[in-house]
Simulated scan of single mutants.
Amino acid sequence: MAVRRLKNGKWQADVTVGVKWDGARDRRTRVCRTKKEAQAAERAFLIERDGRRGISGRITFREFVDTLWWPQKAGLRRNSRDTYRQVLNRRLMPAFGDMDLERINRMSVQKMILSCPTRKSAQKAREVLSSVLGNAVEMGMIAVNPASFRYQYPKKGDGGRQGEWLTTFAQHRRLLGYLRESCPGTAEERMVVLGLCLGLRKGEIFGLDWEDVDLARGTVAIRRTYTVGEGGAALDDPKTERSERTIPLTSWAAARMEAWGPSSGPIVTGRDGGRMNPNTAGKHMRRLVEGCYDDGEPIPRVTLYTLRHSFATACIGEGIEVAKVSRWLGHCDVSTTYNRYVRPMLGDLEVETSVIDAAMGDV
């Protein structure tokens, strides 16, 4: 075992951590840019070796993530890698970065979870932490994964940051009609039509090209997503295998696309005619919802996030089978459609009380 400098100026950590099933040495090496990084990698390998031998070792959460966990995630999709990095930087490193792995316990995990601003962010942080610590358990560095226990989550919602959900097709038609009359063919109208009429994800809206649309057959093929990550915006494969799908065009979407004039390249474009950056699109949507309908009523504060959710909720509300809605959305599991994309509003529930009251009769 050693840390040595290579001819190219980089540094290499080289440690034998054990013996493989065939009797050969289980040798671990890692090439680093600096001697300090190589020494940290060597220390991590030694901790793994000692863990196999039943000897307690010390390694911080940050060292474990940087030297052992991240290298195993090289095959992750770009979106997943960016999500992990964001959660680590915002939630996990501030809470556990300089803490020894073996000192992370149920109390410290609960403290981290309650420090998150929303339930959703807390759940994501616990999931990533569980992935890291579960890997440490597999490598024999810690005995149990404390992030696998059950925890209490913050009761705060998202503070309205995600925007409003339009739960009925009547609400959809009003917004779509307003856009058709006030700003036909603009990026704003195109984004809302693709999200509200087809239920596309944000990245799918910007990844959609005219070549993916068959107006004659009335179908749209979802083949790619366009998202922002390290290095800027880029095209990527759909989120999951089921996300790559072909869906039918609704009448409203088909009519508006014909009006926009079938062309080539991306459907939603920026000022330069190229594919619109998702960050720029958010600014367009914020300007849109600052306006009012002709009768003075404020335009609902919809976002690219809530357009898809509004589509799913309205479909369920009209009695469309949730399994069919799930396939349309490209979900791997029907439960995802139920748990994350269908939100009954209080007003909708109050309407249903009239049905119950009528059935129950007079008091």
Rank of each mutant, 00 (worst) to 15 (best):
V15C: 13
V15M: 12
V17T: 15
V17S: 12
V17C: 13
V17Y: 04
G18W: 06
G18V: 14
V19E: 09
V19M: 11
K20W: 07
W21R: 11
D22P: 08
D22I: 07
G23P: 14
G23K: 00
A24L: 09
A24H: 11
R25N: 13
R25Q: 15
R25S: 15
R27C: 10
R27D: 02
T29N: 08
R30L: 03
V31W: 12
C32R: 12
C32E: 10
C32V: 06
R33E: 05
R33Q: 08
R33A: 14
K36M: 06
K36H: 08
A38D: 03
A38V: 00
Q39R: 07
Q39I: 06
A40T: 07
A40M: 06
A41Q: 02
A41K: 02
A41F: 01
E42R: 03
E42Q: 05
R43Y: 03
R43M: 04
R43L: 05
A44F: 03
A44D: 00
A44V: 07
L46E: 13
I47K: 01
E48N: 11
E48A: 10
R49H: 09
R49Q: 12
R49S: 13
R49P: 04
R49W: 04
D50G: 13
D50P: 03
G51W: 05
G51R: 13
R52A: 06
R53Q: 15
R53C: 04
G54A: 12
G54Q: 04
G54R: 03
G54D: 03
I55Q: 10
I55F: 09
S56M: 12
G57T: 13
R58H: 05
I59D: 00
I59K: 00
I59Y: 01
T60D: 08
T60G: 08
E63Q: 04
F64K: 00
F64Q: 00
F64S: 01
V65S: 02
V65Q: 00
D66Q: 11
T67P: 00
L68K: 10
L68M: 14
L68D: 08
W69Y: 14
W69V: 10
W70M: 08
P71G: 09
Q72D: 14
Q72H: 12
K73M: 10
K73Q: 15
G75W: 12
G75E: 15
L76C: 05
L76G: 03
L76W: 14
R77M: 13
R77L: 13
